[in-house]
Simulated scan of single mutants.
Amino acid sequence: MQDNENRPYQQCTRCIMDTTDPEISFDEKGQCNHCTEYFRLAPLYIYNGEETDRAREALIAKIKEAGKNSDYDCMVGVSGGVDSTYVAYMAKKFGLRILAFHFDNGWNSELAVKNVENIVKKLDIDYQTWVVDWEEFRDLQISFLKASVANAEIPSDHAFLAATYHLCSKYNIKYFLSGSNFATEGILPKSWGYNAKDVKHLKGIHKLFGKTKFKTYPLLGFNREFYYTYVKKIKMVRLLNYIPYVKEDAMKVIQDELGWVYYGGKHYESVFTRFFQAYYLPHKFGYDKRLAHLSTLICSGQMTREQALEEMKKDTYPPELLAEDKEYVIKKLGMNAEEFEAILNAPPKSYKEYPNDEKRLKFIYKVYNKLRGR
């Protein structure tokens, strides 16, 4: 881990990112590299009127053309969260034939399950669930927790990507519509996590700390991704970048139209993710992802800096819910309180302290993106 203890605390004067990101930098105005980079890239990824409308219309036409010999035009991952729900809603409005896909890693909240059920029922779309083998997945999650790395969500993120490509290939679907978007997710420090696609890293940590063997856990190495992308011609599209995406407005639409219910925070539709983001990361690493989420909303004009600072003062994790979630997480992982406290109190480590393919993957993806014209 990069030592940040001796650095004076500083917070951006434009957004609210601060020196809890050890790699943050500031200019002479006190504005950080994150919001500066956001504004540099915004013209490429933010909706800008008629030009984006034309691009979206062309994209929808391509998706329909690619799906004309299949049962579906596209697949949409639905978690029960606002972004993926709104993608499904808009894709249906654009006349696309959708296969909804839900990745079940065993941590869904009851509210998330109800949201997903409402989405597929009210939009009248087909639905496929990928359920992980719990014993394999639990062992991998515990391995990442024992490794003391910041991105303990890699087991979920990696499997989701692998399952997505697998199902698109199985159903001959050429387009996967992702809920990822620049307007509300354009800022996230690299120092707070690591590439979920790095199979060497995932296998390396599992080999050091795991007890079971992979039998059904879906893996996605670069070779496999290359096959899906160039041979099967599967494309991932961030549909929300093609529309004027304002989160509060989107939430109201899906509440009114789909009976969607808010779950209290970004990605809190998962019990583990709620505990991970609201307690584990801040407690163990000092990382509060709300800083990045709210800073992005400031940059996209959906919130003022003053509003964001007030939001940061709120307790989004009531003590009763924290205690309940912590007990549930410990029990579900098959651990005892002492074992879990030992993990929480172990010194944080960098992903670089474990096997990884970072240098090779950076080079490969640089070439890969050039070939794709990105």
Rank of each mutant, 00 (worst) to 15 (best):
Cys12Glu: 07
Arg14Leu: 12
Cys15Leu: 12
Asp18Asn: 15
Thr20Asp: 11
His34Gln: 06
Phe39Asn: 10
Tyr45Ala: 08
Asn48Thr: 00
Asp53Ala: 06
Lys62Gln: 14
Glu65Gly: 00
Gly67Thr: 08
Cys74Trp: 13
Met75Arg: 05
Tyr86Lys: 14
Ala88Pro: 01
Asn108Arg: 04
Glu110Asp: 14
Val113Asn: 04
Asn115Leu: 00
Val116Tyr: 03
Asn118Tyr: 01
Asp124Cys: 07
Glu135Ser: 11
Phe137His: 15
Tyr171Asp: 05
Asn172Ser: 13
Tyr175Gln: 01
Thr184Ser: 13
Pro189Glu: 11
Lys190Asp: 10
Trp192Ala: 07
Asn195Asp: 13
Ala196Glu: 05
Leu202Cys: 03
His206Arg: 12
Phe209Ile: 05
Glu225Ile: 02
Tyr228Arg: 07
Tyr245Ala: 03
Asp249Trp: 01
Asp249Ser: 11
Lys252Ala: 12
Gly264Leu: 08
Tyr268Glu: 04
Tyr280Asn: 05
Lys284Leu: 03
Gly286Arg: 09
Asp288Ala: 04
Arg290Asn: 09
Leu291Val: 09
Ile298Val: 14
Gln302Phe: 01
Met303Tyr: 00
Glu306Ala: 09
Glu310Phe: 03
Pro319Ile: 11
Glu320Asp: 09
Lys331Thr: 04
Glu341Tyr: 08
Pro347Arg: 08
Asn369Ser: 09
Arg372Val: 00
Gly373Asn: 11
